[in-house]
Design a protein around this nucleic acid. Structure first.
Length: 428
RNA sequence: GCGGUAUUGGUGAAGUGGUUAACACACUGGUUUGUGGAUCCAGCAUACGUGGGUUCGAUUCCCACAUACCGCCCCA
């Protein structure tokens, strides 16, 4: 039977998985230093969790949800994003209680699922790195979240990224602004693009970043969210911006920035990468914002929260272009080549000994001819080849050859007893 | 969900309605039976995504499906 992986999925093979490891390790290290700890939640949840949190009419829910009924008749959905599950876990485990230090800061690195038409950097199973912070409505919580995103991209070596930032205000503001947009666009509805006419009913905010030519002339004069902000929202936004200024973090206030999910309530932001060799127009690699009502939505106490998510596939795409050094194959430290009767056992012992010192080492389980063993050493990018022959074994000696220049070193088995001794031999 | 392009070996690819599917790289073996990355020799496709159809005959024509990619929608 010939089998094929499901549409929109990929196999991450060893050549690539080592790159993923590096990226994820960088993220984990940074989060750990900021005292964000990992949370792992189920990859599937009850359908309603996502339909409620993302918005019934959002595209994610309407057409991208990977859902099914299980054998017990439960309506299940594979998670399309990370926040809802974390919020559910927050409430279900009563983390809002006094036993937990606030804010409650967590991160996750996990697969997500969306039933979509695949493209480069967009799959049905994809991965997100995300952070969430629960319990603080302080502007510094917003700043901290933005900084984490910023610093992560910087540590990874992403170039040409731009922070776009905007604020949606609280639900009253959103409602008022929503109405204002509808009032503004409805009179000219038949002049709008087909897509935008549909958006007018469903999600008027979306019209703002329409690419359709017909829509462009209406956009500059469209009402701005800032005109509808309450004083508190305005003040918080100003504080966030002022702090970013003082910290030297560059940003662009983007009136047209609207995130696709319904649950955002305050500041929203995206880090966009402009790389013409990857995408015609700047693309978002990291997006997030404040969502102060989601915990209540799931019957938890009123709890402010803020977070972001990174699309890992997109991030990898960017890094492969912008930081190729990070992705170079390192190879192994030692390859043990052996020749002659009874030397195979010694090769195994030497390899294990070397590994115990913390080096990487491999020997030829196929026991091919010496020449073939050397060829294999080249292919696995070994730095050194240790040659073991009957003669060496008898004398308690071994030869170490540096493949880069062919230099040979003579060592004794005693030199394998500790790392310093071995390094000393190689330093000669 | 809509529109478009593509699909030949491990890889990059050439090519044709008709006995043996070019070339290159990679790989494997050999080139004095203990030393690699060079040269040389040899080997290396279940037959051209899957299934139908047209045809005396299809990898080459048609249709469907699958998958990938591009654009839209949307988004990470």
């Amino acid at each position: 039977m010939r089998v094929q992986r499901p549409k929109g999925t990929v196999d991450i093979l060893p050549a690539t998985s080592s790159q993923w490891e590096k990226v994820e390790q960088t993220a984990r290290d940074l989060f750990k230093r900021a005292n964000y700890r990992e949370i792992r939640t189920p990859s599937f949840e009850n359908y309603e969790l996502f339909s409620r949190s993302s918005g019934e009419t959002s595209d994610v829910v309407e057409k991208e949800m990977y859902d099914f009924n299980d054998k017990g008749g439960r309506h299940i959905a594979l998670r399309p994003e990370g926040t809802a599950g974390v919020v559910r876990a927050y409430v279900e485990n009563k983390i809002y209680g006094p036993d937990y230090v606030k804010p409650f800061n967590v991160y996750y690195i996990a697969p997500m699922y969306r039933y979509e038409r695949p493209q480069a950097g967009r799959q049905r199973e994809f991965h997100q790195i995300g952070v969430e912070s629960f319990g603080s409505n302080g502007y510094l919580a917003d700043v901290e979240t933005i900084l984490l995103g910023h610093d992560l991209l910087a540590e990874l070596g992403v170039k040409n990224y731009e922070l776009h930032i905007n604020t949606l205000g609280d639900s009253d503001v959103r409602a008022a602004y929503h109405d204002a947009l509808v009032n503004y666009f409805t009179p000219v509805k038949d002049q709008l693009s087909e897509d935008s006419q549909r958006r007018l009913d469903k999600n008027p905010l979306r019209i703002l970043d329409s690419k359709a030519e017909e829509d462009q002339k209406f956009l500059p004069d469209a009402p701005k969210i800032r005109e509808y902000l309450d004083d508190e929202s305005k003040e918080t936004f100003e504080k966030i911006l002022a702090t970013l200024d003082k910290l030297g973090v560059k940003y662009v206030i983007d009136d047209d920035l609207v995130r696709g999910l319904d649950y955002y309530t305050g500041v929203i932001f995206e880090f966009m990468v402009d790389d013409k060799s990857l995408w015609a127009s700047p693309s978002t690699v990291l997006g997030g914002g404040r969502y102060n009502h989601l915990v209540e939505e799931f019957d938890g106490p009123e709890t402010p929260a803020v977070g972001f998510g990174i699309g890992e596939e997109r991030l990898m795409l960017v890094l492969s272009k912008q930081n190729p050094e990070m992705f170079e194959d390192q190879g192994i430290d030692f390859f043990i080549a052996n020749i002659g009767e009874g030397t195979d056992l010694k090769a195994v012992e030497v390899a294990r000994k070397i590994r115990s010192l913390g080096f990487s080492a491999q020997y030829d389980v196929d026991q091919k001819k010496l020449k073939a063993q050397f060829r294999k050493a080249d292919r696995v990018k070994a730095s050194y080849v240790i040659t073991l022959g009957a003669k060496e074994v008898a004398e308690g000696k071994l030869t170490i050859k540096r493949l880069s220049d062919g230099e040979q070193f003579s060592a004794s088995f005693a030199d394998l007893e500790d790392k310093e001794a071995l390094l000393a031999v190689l330093a000669k």
